[in-house]
């Protein structure tokens, strides 16, 4: 039974990828890509990587919205047939070589495959965590996570810099155009449920699949829904409180990281016995900042419209 499910998934994934690549227009390609993401999330669940599946589903949905917006803004041009047959043949050969190389490596992997899973689980007790993925993200490889959040911040600054001169402090346009009554209903019904689920995801992240990125995406989606329904106006991007909220997460992370120099004597090292508390503070601060950043990336640059 499970083998059948896996076979269907394994078959559907390349079919969906090919559909997305060969779609006639951008919108179909994006919809195919979103479906591919959901199937991929199911595949991660089947592989037992529920953390990755949650992230894939959450980030995939947000990326899908971004891509749909880009697809509607994109100007369709006739694609010129570039490259000579020789060049195309060489490219195909190079791609086939890479695929074959990866296939050889995967097929020839030692059994059991080399794994750091045991090492990741070994120190969970010292961190007072139950989820090894959270331990990797916020303790063993905290520097990667710090840089990841800074990358999101940089992406937001990149989006903001697309605004025209004198407009970048203003509020971005409300997403989705004029709101219809079903959207208003959804924006009243769903956010309470979504916020409870987000807080749950954030809190269980210590011991079970979940964590700040998934929670932040959910909060961002709920906020965007409220904005789409026109129940609240988009914020002005020049506001000090908004910018403070965005900067708070990475700033708290960096501050706790620097404090590590004082007590255990190393950047991003937590003092003994305080690891859990430090991780909770970082996770909560990052969730708030990431939620704001992800929503603001979707909202886009300011349009200079001043709202009261």
């Amino acid at each position: 039974m499970n083998a059948t499910l896996d076979a269907v998934l394994a078959l559907m994934l390349p079919v969906m990828a090919l559909f997305s690549l060969n779609a006639r227009d951008e919108r179909s390609a994006v919809i195919g890509f979103m479906a591919l993401g959901l199937l991929l999330a199911l595949a991660w669940v089947r592989l037992g990587a529920v953390d990755v599946a949650l992230t894939e589903a959450a980030i995939g949905a947000l990326t899908g919205v971004l891509l749909l917006g880009a697809a509607s803004a994109a100007v369709s041009v006739a694609v010129p047939r570039t490259g000579s047959p020789l060049l195309r043949g060489l490219l195909a050969l190079a791609a086939a070589l890479v695929a074959a190389g990866v296939a050889v490596i995967v097929a020839g992997a030692p059994d059991p495959a080399p794994s750091l899973a045991a090492a990741a689980v070994a120190h969970l007790g010292a961190l007072e965590l139950g989820n090894p993925v959270t331990a990797v993200l916020l303790a063993y490889r905290a520097l990667d996570t710090l840089l990841e959040t800074v990358v999101v911040l940089l992406a937001l600054i990149g989006v903001w810099s697309l605004a025209g001169e004198g407009e970048w402090r203003g509020a971005p346009a409300a997403p989705g155009g004029t709101a219809s009554r079903p959207v208003v209903l959804l924006a009243r019904l769903l956010p309470p449920v979504g916020l409870v689920v987000a807080v749950h995801l954030l809190w269980v992240g210590a011991d079970a699949p979940g964590g700040k990125f998934q929670a932040a995406t959910l909060i961002a989606a709920m906020w965007l829904l409220v904005l789409m329904a026109g129940l609240r106006a988009p914020p002005e991007l020049g506001g000090a409180r908004l910018r403070g909220l965005i900067a708070a997460g990475p700033a708290v992370f960096i501050a706790i990281g620097l404090a590590g120099f004082l007590v255990p004597g190393q950047f991003l090292a937590y003092p003994e016995g305080w690891a859990k508390a430090a991780i909770i503070v970082i996770e909560v601060a990052l969730t708030a900042s990431l939620a704001a950043m992800l929503a603001l990336i979707v909202l886009g640059p300011g349009t200079g419209e001043r709202r009261t």
Binding site: S180, V183, L185, L186, L189, L190, V193
Partner: peptide, 16 residues
């Protein structure tokens, strides 16, 4: 219940 709400509302939106 969530699928019911989402389906009903999405259906209304598409119909509109």
């Amino acid at each position: 219940l969530l699928a019911l709400g989402a389906g009903g509302i999405a259906g209304q939106m598409i119909a509109q």
